[in-house]
Structure formats: C-alpha cells, structure tokens
C-alpha cells in the first residue's frame, strides 16, 4: 500500500516539475536566443521577463478553443492529446537519481523508444484531420522524417546496451561508473543526438512545421490549448531527449559527490537543453530530400557499422 502512495506521489511531483520546466523553458529559449542574436528578448513582465510565462499560460487558457468546421473533429481533438500524453509517459523510465525513478523496468530503453515513436501519430493525425493543404504536406513530411530517423535511433543505442548488457536504465547508468559511454560510443552519441533532434522535430529539422514555407505545417489550423499541447509536447520532448542523452552517454546522476545525484542529472540535462537552443540559433533548415538522404544513406549504415565494431571490440577485449 505504501508503495502505491509512493508511486502516486512520485508521479504527481514528476508531472508538476516537468510541466513547470517545460513552461520556463519557453522563456529560457527566447532569452538565450535573444542573447545569441544581440537582442533583448522578453524583459518586461517581472524580473528578467520571467512572468511572461505566466502571462502566456493565462492567455492560452482564455483563448477560443476553435475546431474548424471542415476538420475531422474527433481526430482533430485527440491528435494534440497523444503527443503530450506520450511524452509524459516516456519520463516514467528516466532515472533521475538512485531510487528516484517511477518505474525501473528491465525493458526501460525499449519503453522509451516505443513511447517516443508514438509522437508521429499526433503529427499525421493532426495534419490529416486539419483538412488544410499546408497541414497535409507538413504531416506527410513529418511522418516520413520521424519514421526514417526512428530506424537508427534505436540502433545507435544498441552499442550502449552491448556495453552494459541491459535495457534497464539504472543498470546502464551504473555501468558507467568507470568511464562515461561517450568515451567508447562517440558515434552512437552523435547519431542518437541527430535522430533525437529529428524525432522532436526541433530546428534545424523542423521540416514538418517549416514556418517560412508551410506556415506552421501540421498545426496551422490549431489554436488555443490544443496548440498549447503540441507546444508542451515539443518542449517536453527536448527535455526527454536531453535527459536520455545524459542517462545513456554522460553517466546520468553520476558525478563528484559534493553535489547530490539529482543536481548532477539536472545540470547535465540543462547543458543539452542549451545545446538544443544553440542548434536553433545557429543552423539553417535543410531541404526535405537532403534530410532523408542524409538519414538513410549516411546515418543508417553508420549506425550498423558502429554496432558491429562495438560487438567485435567487446568480444576481443573479453578474450
């Protein structure tokens, strides 16, 4: 019984912390982008413009919940719900510190991959149900981008799985006590990071929503809190990919003992979130065909090669 209460408490805290971080991340992104581009960014509401998040949230709540008459109403409504719920589900398996994990599954990594691939449904369904030509184009591009990068996203992580011999994320973190897996798996790390950016369709891989050509793509017709759900899903996705990179390649909560594990985990995750924003600030968007060709012809063979070389080296070392 007490474990049930523990779970419920953990989940409640997790939901609160994640949505709060995701909301402030919007402020952080706008401020940091402004800094890197020699602008001010939001600086009026509250200290450093921090309260802009509160204002935005209140505004989103009081906006009209518009369902276009030409849309498929049911699918139009459930599409944004899928992305937010699926990303929140993925956080179940992330180990924030020893003991601070909601469900320490022995198939944690597979669970993460399964949940992160559910996000593609929201794009396809949302874009299709909008019955808008821009949305349809965005949805199709988004779907083919995400499923293409999904193939080797999992594959790039198998090197880590081979080194640690487990799908359980806490085992993977504990296997990095001598050295972080970034040392032995740099190729896997780079491939996973690129695939992660593509999976969360963040810039520079925001081809499904490409503002300058598709006017927000798959969520052109969305407004109010339904748009907000896509937005929250995107920012939660950034946090998720960053925390998975930290867990799998940068030793998770491990670090010098003068700070507790949770702090190390959040510090490292924060670095990768900033990296995501830096990508947005500095890189132009590739063309759709360039993105697909790069994924299939470069990253997929590279991921396979990485897997085989890791296997061979591990076996030779064991002899």
């Amino acid at each position: 019984m007490s474990t049930t209460i523990y779970y419920i408490l953990m989940i409640a805290i997790l939901l609160f912390v994640l949505t709060t971080i995701a909301a402030w991340l919007i402020w952080l992104e706008r401020r940091v982008l402004a800094l890197w581009q020699d602008r001010y960014g939001p600086n009026r509401a509250g200290p450093f413009g921090l309260f802009i998040v509160v204002a935005d949230t209140i505004k989103l709540f009081f906006k009209e919940d518009w369902i276009p008459p030409f849309a498929d109403k049911f699918i139009f409504v459930i599409a944004p719900a899928i992305v937010a719920a699926a990303v929140l589900m993925s956080f179940v398996v992330v180990p924030f510190a020893p003991g601070i994990v909601v469900a320490d599954l022995n198939i944690g990594l597979l669970f993460f991959l399964a949940m992160s691939s559910l996000g593609v449904y929201s794009i396809v369904l949302g874009g299709w149900a909008s019955n808008n030509k821009y949305s349809l184009l965005g949805a199709l591009r988004g779907a083919s981008q995400m499923i293409s990068y999904e193939v080797f996203m999992g594959l790039s992580l198998m090197g880590v799985v081979m080194l640690s011999g487990s799908f359980r994320l806490t085992d993977i973190v504990l296997a990095q006590q001598d050295y972080w897996f970034i040392v032995t798996q740099p190729v896997g790390f780079v491939i996973f990071l690129i695939a992660g950016v593509a999976e969360t369709h963040r810039l520079p891989f925001d081809i499904p929503e490409a503002e300058s050509e598709l006017v927000a793509g798959f969520h052109s017709e969305y407004s109010g809190m339904k748009f907000g759900m896509f937005f929250i899903g995107e920012y939660l996705g950034v946090i998720l990919i960053s925390s998975m990179v930290v867990t799998l390649f940068f030793g998770g909560w491990l670090g010098p003992s003068f700070l507790p594990g949770v702090v190390w985990f959040f510090l490292k995750t924060f670095v990768f979130i900033l990296f995501f924003i830096l990508l947005r600030a500095s890189l132009p968007r590739p063309r759709y065909d360039q993105l697909m060709e790069y994924g299939w012809k470069v990253l997929l063979p590279l991921a396979l090669l990485n897997l085989l070389i890791t296997g061979a080296v591990v076996l030779v070392m064991k002899e």
Binding site: A85, V102, L105
Partner: peptide
C-alpha cells in the same frame, strides 16, 4: 512493476 505506468497513463491523460 508496471503498476506505476498505469498510474502515469491515468495522470498524463487526466492532465
């Protein structure tokens, strides 16, 4: 072990 996942699903959907 899968119980918290059901909880999380309920909480996420509820939210």
């Amino acid at each position: 072990n899968y119980l918290p996942i059901i909880f999380q699903l309920l909480v996420a959907l509820g939210f």
